[in-house]
Structures are given as structure tokens and as C-alpha cells.
Simulated scan of single mutants.
Amino acid sequence: MSEAVGVFDRAVGLDPSNPDVYLHRGQVHLVMENLDMAIMDFQKSLSINDSTAIAHIHKNFSELRKALSQQDFDKAEKITLSFQDILNRFPSCADGYAFYGQALLDMKKFEEADDCFKKAIQLEPNNPNSYVHRGILRLSWKEDFEGGYKFIKKGIEIDGHSSFAYQALGTLEFQKGLIDSAIDLLEKAVDYSTSETEMIHLYSILLAAQVQHKVAARLGVSMPSLI
């Protein structure tokens, strides 16, 4: 991922007035959890072109992640509410509803989050991530394993190479005690990861599942309910 940042650094040097360069570099910083750098890049992109919906959305989401990491819940609440202003301006942006849904899920506003994911699916029915997010929501909100499984499987049907979907389904299988299936799905998630940061994160989950499985088998005890 640092190599990708380097590429965009060079692109900024070649074309410093191109808002897309800052937008894409900001997206890389967001994935890497470099939130301050991400916010700066999204702000720079918007200072050049204020009409890009995804730049507004990613800036807001980065600011929310930062506020939550600092446990500044009052600020997080204000940022969450400001998503609505963005959606009023860009009502047909599916990513806007998807990110707003994630923000609401982080704030444990489950019913509102579900409405956002439904709207994202309505606007962009072939995006697997919104189905997966809705499946995760069903698990967090109502412990609805059947409903969660249905939505996550739908995500995999749409994109058979979605590491996010395989991670979610692997975690669900682990919770149900289907350990061999869970490990197989988590291995697929690692195989389909698209960045070094994502691969490291997924591999740590896979390794934890494998270790817990071996320890539980050796001691003859039940597996914990969560990875």
C-alpha cells in the first residue's frame, strides 16, 4: 500500500490541480487507517472540485472513524448527522447510503442503518458489499443467523472473489461451530484480498481460528462463539 501512496505522490507532482489524484490517495490512506492524511487529501480534492460525491462521503467517513477512535462521541454524532446533508445533495449515490449505513451501524443505530443498506441495494443491486453489510447488521442487531447468512451468500453470488464476503461468511460459520468450513472460507478471503493491509488483517483472523480450533480439540472443550 505504501507503494500506491508513492505512485500518487508522484502523480501530485505531475498534476497538482487534479482532484482525482488526491481523492484516490486519500482512499489508500483510509484503507491504511492513516485518517489524518486521508482527511487532508479528501479536503484538498474538494477544494479543487466540490461536486464529487464520493470525496464528500469518504471525508465524512474518515472524520467519523477518527472521532470514534478518540472516543469523541458528541463529535461522532454530529458527523453522522451530516451524512444526511450529503445525501440530500447527492440522492442517487449508492456509496453514500452504504457508508452512511456503516456509520449508523458503528453508532448502533441499527434500524436506520438497515434502511440505508436497503437504499444502497436499491440504487446499485449488483454491489456485493451492501448485501454483506446488511447481513452483518442482521447478526449484530437481531442475532438473525439465517437472515445474515442469506445476505452474505447473496454477496458471494454477485462476486465470487469478494474477500469481505468470504470473511463475513467464514466468521458466521465459525460462530455456528462449522470450523472446517469456516477455515476454508477464511482461506479464500485471504486468497482474494486486494491489498497487503487487508491480507495481514484477514490472515490474523484465519490464524486465530486455526489456533482456537486446535486448542479446543486438544482440550476437548467447546469453541468460543466469536473469532
Results as ranks from 00 to 15, higher is better:
A67I: 13
V31E: 08
A120W: 04
K78M: 10
P19S: 03
G177T: 01
M40G: 05
E33V: 12
T52C: 09
F151D: 14
Q70S: 14
E143K: 15
N129C: 08
E143C: 07
L178C: 11
I39Y: 06
K153R: 14
L219M: 01
F83H: 06
T52E: 12
I136A: 01
S47N: 12
N18Y: 04
V215K: 01
F151L: 10
S92R: 15
E146Q: 12
L226R: 12
Y131M: 09
K59H: 14
A189F: 07
D159H: 11
F8H: 03
A165Y: 07
A94F: 10
F99P: 03
E173K: 14
S162Y: 02
V28M: 00
L172M: 10
K176S: 11
I205Y: 00
R134Y: 03
N88R: 08
E111S: 12
N60C: 15
A11E: 01
K153V: 15
I121C: 01
N127S: 11
E77H: 14
A209Q: 03
A217Y: 02
Y203R: 10
R218G: 02
I200N: 04
I79Y: 12
A38F: 07
V215H: 00
M37T: 07
F42W: 08
L139K: 05
S2T: 08
I39G: 11
Q71N: 15
H58E: 09
Y131H: 11
Q71D: 14
F99S: 02
R134E: 05
E124D: 13
K176V: 10
I48R: 00
D15A: 06
L206Y: 01
F174G: 12
S47E: 08
F110V: 09
S130G: 01
T52H: 09
L169I: 14
Q70R: 15
R134A: 07
E112R: 14
L178S: 13
D9T: 13
Q212V: 07
V190A: 02
A67P: 07
L226M: 12
Q212A: 04
K109V: 11
L202V: 00
A76D: 10
Q84P: 06
A209V: 04
Y203C: 01
L104R: 12
A217N: 07
E146W: 01
A120I: 12
A165F: 06
I86E: 02
E187D: 13
A216C: 14
K150P: 01
F8W: 10
K66A: 14
E196H: 04
Q84K: 13
D191M: 03
K150T: 06
P91L: 11
E63N: 08
D36Q: 12
T52Q: 14
E3L: 11
S45W: 04
Q167P: 04
P224Q: 01
D74K: 13
V221G: 02
S204G: 04
